[in-house]
Design a protein around this nucleic acid. Sequence first.
DNA 1: GTACGTACTTACGATTAGTAAGCAATAGGT
DNA 2: ACCTATTGCTTACTAATCGTAAGTACGTAC
Lengths: 144, 144
Amino acid sequence: MSPRQSRAAARRPARISEQLRRGDLLAADCPSRDVLKHVTSRWGVLVLIALEERTCRFSELRRTIGGVSERMLAQTLQWLEGDGLVDRVAYEVVPPHVEYSLTPLGRAAAKRVRALADWIEVSLPRIAQKWDERRATTGPGRAR
Amino acid sequence: MSPRQSRAAARRPARISEQLRRGDLLAADCPSRDVLKHVTSRWGVLVLIALEERTCRFSELRRTIGGVSERMLAQTLQWLEGDGLVDRVAYEVVPPHVEYSLTPLGRAAAKRVRALADWIEVSLPRIAQKWDERRATTGPGRAR
DNA sequence: GTACGTACTTACGATTAGTAAGCAATAGGT
DNA sequence: ACCTATTGCTTACTAATCGTAAGTACGTAC
């Protein structure tokens, strides 16, 4: 029995307490889909990576993460905070001062996210090569 | 000098050939953002996980991945194929028979994606606990 | 007094995702 | 003969989501 098969077998365990059961991302109605949505969202990935390096203020994150809007950054941070991955500390001063950092749970998530992100950055040349090959036969324009 | 710092320093190497340069996901206009979009898309993650276990036909994938529509599955597969992560083999028969599998590049990506997915599935109870705590103070309703 | 910085929120138009239906060609049931 | 089902898509249409721009409150600097 391979590790994969044992994992598949464990996917629906026989009636363990609902609160302790692991998620199943392949199931449409599993709450883990919400976590996946937050963590792998366009900006969620980059927020986790940025916060893994250091605690940041809102506007620091905005400057670090190229192209993010204030609206989406705020929403993403609220998602991640709600999942217990990001910690928000606000100082009651003017102008406002808010610091965002990763919780232990968030650091664990960021580790996996960064592994993926690093792979993408390193593999980009090989993937871009595919784009070029395809463009040579299929005509110009990269799939968005 | 920490590994993180050295990585940050390597982010903008001094004029190596453009074709060989690694991506920078924090830069708004870097093409690696497109790869990230495809790989971390709602269905891209699940396609990679499903195909990591075995080669699948289109409709097998549709049944395996709960909640995916034919439209989005087709589009996701085309993205991943275009990035060279998924291989598509069509047999000219009726009814049509098409098999999807991972390329070596796709298997490398799937490995990282599954590490993240596994973490989410296992960590779901701890995250759901956060939701419960928050719901107790903030009122009902989970952040989507 | 005008401009700027901070951390948001709120409207609104633009992009994207999801739903349902269509298609082509064959096999199987009644 | 006819109706239905299957497969792997694509094409309209609609609903959700995203990005842009602006507004807010309060203080400091020019």
